[in-house]
Design a protein around this nucleic acid. Structure first.
Length: 395
RNA sequence: CCGGAGGUGGCAGAGCGGCCAAUCGCAGUUGACUGUAAAUCAACCGGGUUUUCCCUACGGAGGUUCGAAUCCUCCCCUCCGGA
């Protein structure tokens, strides 16, 4: 892949750079999630200050509101949201899963944890070979998303990196169902490619294919081969199982895929998983964890200040023990929030429901993860990745 | 001093004879959060090491009842009017 260069390897970990129409992204890198054309609670100015190089938007949400045509009229998502650095958009395939089957069955893609909503209304969500008919979570209106439509929308949004429309295994996922779903992802992948090439957009959008196959090694390998044969960029998606299985899946896939293509691990981004992903050859990650955790009072701390894999490297600012704590969230952190505000103040803002809390907390969490990725990248360049990983994880 | 309304668990505030260790909310504790229906959700929240179990509890002291936070009597204390 001519736009992607690997500069250095430390074991299977790679440090590289991906060139896009809106700039270079140094890898490994983390994409903060900005589903609706914003990274919740942060503006582009702050993202730049942090050093964020790429963010992720979502086809599903943006097509429903405000609509791809509207964004196109504004010159694309970059202009619309005032962000001139790279953007990746997700295909919407995942939402069809997470807002349909997954909500009805209460399943999630990692570890099977559940998110209980007071009442989860049954959703119309019909998967056919053509595509998916679904109801909007906003107003219940009916929509259809097909591979062609997803690509078309992503083209209108004008993202630098886009994702082929993929199917998700049903939550029951018997192997037969998995295989069937995988076939659909392959068919849809080819259709996505056809649409993508036919219009020959400006050739600058890089499209990821998505590797599926759940926790089955043979399916994952088959999917890896298929994706590698047809796409210039590889992403891993679908159901991952627990953290151990996630590691294995990444190992299976990265062993079967071309070295010179960028690899994105979709939806993953807890600290421990970042290390394990990078160690196994992944270049890109995106995850709602830092932004969502921030809003929920969970703020990242490094190992020397109490972070560990048990607490997911986070402390809970809600606890009354911080009520008069003058220290910053993480005394070792150099972010604006940590340089200027105490835990006591942040806790106060949280309890008071003040908007500024979201901003300061999210700023810290994104800074923390982006900074961690910077450290990881430097470590790879200096052949000390495993030392750094050991410092953080103890293994 | 007279008239009226009240005193319930950290706060606030329901209950007004048994299903009340006491609704709901806030505060508190714990847990969850991984391609964002998420400024969210769940559990706990008097004490006793688990309990369909036992204690202590609804201003205080008595009483009526098989049984009271709920009814009666007296006392103490608040608040609102009027002198």
């Amino acid at each position: 892949m001519k736009n992607f260069k690997i500069l250095h390897r430390d074991g299977n970990a790679r440090a590289g750079r991906l060139t896009t129409p809106h700039g270079v992204i140094e890898t490994p890198n983390f994409n903060p999630v900005g589903t609706q054309g914003v990274v919740k609670a942060l503006g582009p100015r702050e993202l730049k200050e942090i050093g964020v190089q790429i963010i992720l938007g979502n086809t599903y949400h943006l097509m429903l509101r405000p609509g791809a045509e509207l964004i196109e009229k504004f010159g694309g998502l970059h202009q619309f949201m005032g962000w001139d650095k790279p953007i990746m958009t997700d295909s919407g395939g995942f939402q069809v899963f997470s807002l349909g089957v997954a909500l009805e069955h209460g399943s999630s893609k990692v570890v099977g944890r559940k998110y209980q909503k007071e009442e989860s209304r049954p959703r119309l969500n019909k998967i056919t070979e053509e595509g998916v008919i679904f109801q909007s979570h906003l107003d219940g209106s009916k929509h259809i998303l097909t591979p062609e439509k997803s690509i078309e929308i992503q083209r209108k949004l004008g993202a630098d990196l886009i994702v082929a429309f993929d199917d998700h295994e049903s939550s029951k996922h018997t192997k037969a169902e998995m295989e069937k779903s995988l076939e659909l992802t392959e068919i849809w992948g080819l259709r996505s490619l056809k649409k993508y090439n036919r219009k020959n957009w400006d050739g600058k959008q890089l499209m990821y294919g998505v590797v599926h196959g759940g926790t089955h090694q043979d399916l994952r390998i088959r999917s890896a081969h298929f994706t590698d044969e047809n796409f210039d960029a590889i992403s891993i998606g679908g159901i991952y199982g627990d953290k151990k299985m996630l590691c294995r899946i990444v190992e299976w896939v990265s062993a079967e895929v071309s070295e010179d293509k960028p690899r994105h691990l979709l939806g993953i981004g807890e600290v421990e998983d970042l290390f394990n992903g990078v160690e196994r050859g992944m270049d890109f990650f995106d995850c709602v964890a830092p932004t969502r955790r921030a809003r929920f009072g969970s703020l990242y701390i490094c190992p020397e200040n109490g972070g560990n894999k048990i607490n997911s490297f986070a402390m809970s600012i809600r606890q009354s023990r911080y009520i008069s704590d003058k220290k910053p969230i993480d005394p070792a952190c150099g972010c604006y929030t940590c340089l200027n505000f105490s835990r006591a103040y942040l806790r106060h803002l949280y309890s008071a429901g003040e908007i500024l809390y979201h901003n300061l907390a999210t700023f810290h969490n994104i800074y923390f993860i982006v900074n961690l990725m910077r450290e990881i990248r430097s470590a790879i360049l200096e052949d000390s990745f495993h030392k750094l990983k050991f410092q953080w994880l103890g293994y």
